[in-house]
Amino acid sequence: MRRFAGWLLSAPATLAVIGILVVPVAVVLAATLTDPRGPWAPYAAFFNSGFRTTVLVRTLQISAITTVISLVFGFVAAYAVSRAPRRLRSLLIVAAVFPLLTGVVVRAFAWLVILGRNGILNGALVAAGVTDEPFALLYTQGAVIVGMVYLFVPLMILTLVGVLENIPEDLLQASASLGATPTATFWQVLMPMAVPGLIVGAVLVFTGSFTAYATPQLLGGERQTVLATLLQQRAMVSFDWVGASTIAAIMVAITISVVLVMSRTARRLNPVAAS
């Protein structure tokens, strides 16, 4: 009996994940390979469509830019947070957790208010005499990227604060005692030790923005269609289920490749993994 206790206790959750997630997703992926036109036909159709490949490239581009911006600003902010005095640090962590727990729709909506034609930014620009005519800020790639960065910077900060706080103070002091200037300590000790964390953060942000729906839908609209919004249109508007399944398969493939490649890189770069 005890030999199976672990199995018995985890069985309901295991079956739920398999039955509700794994099987349906597998069915979707399998459908793209069992197309009557031939196993790779849906993919050929996808890549032969100029519009769809543009969407794919745009999605990759938005995700990559979002990731880079989030990395840079998230790292600097996380560095400051990790060196802040205790009480301030807790406050700053709360200030990063709060947006994270606020829904994506609410957070995208905030930027709608800011970037809209009659939004705050345009209002301020007109009032300041910078322009007479409000700028078309919404439904641009920039708007989507700002919204995405807003979505993912808190995640990046929290991930990196955890990593930076785990770097023992001793090591930074050892570096100073050996004559390393603060700058040298930063580049030669802190950075190399933070790299695995940076990779984890980058994976989270990239995969997150690659598959995000609400933000590009609200801030990008049809002009900035990305894979997620395209999938939704194909499925719910055009009822093109094979097309939607193909997009789903491409998203899964790219997401999983990124996770695998980056986790392998992280493992290779992480010196402590040997212990």
């Binding site: 997630l21 794994v22 349906p24 069915v27 598959t211 939607a244 399944s245 998203m251």
Partner: peptide
């Protein structure tokens, strides 16, 4: 007594893109 993949199974709902999960559920 449990295989290592079981732990991975329980993070799948985070790894699989949500939008794909939603679409797959709709299809089934």
């Amino acid at each position: 007594q449990l295989p290592p993949w079981l732990g991975t199974l329980f993070v799948l709902p985070i790894i699989v893109p949500e939008i794909v999960f939603g679409f797959a559920l709709l299809k089934s």
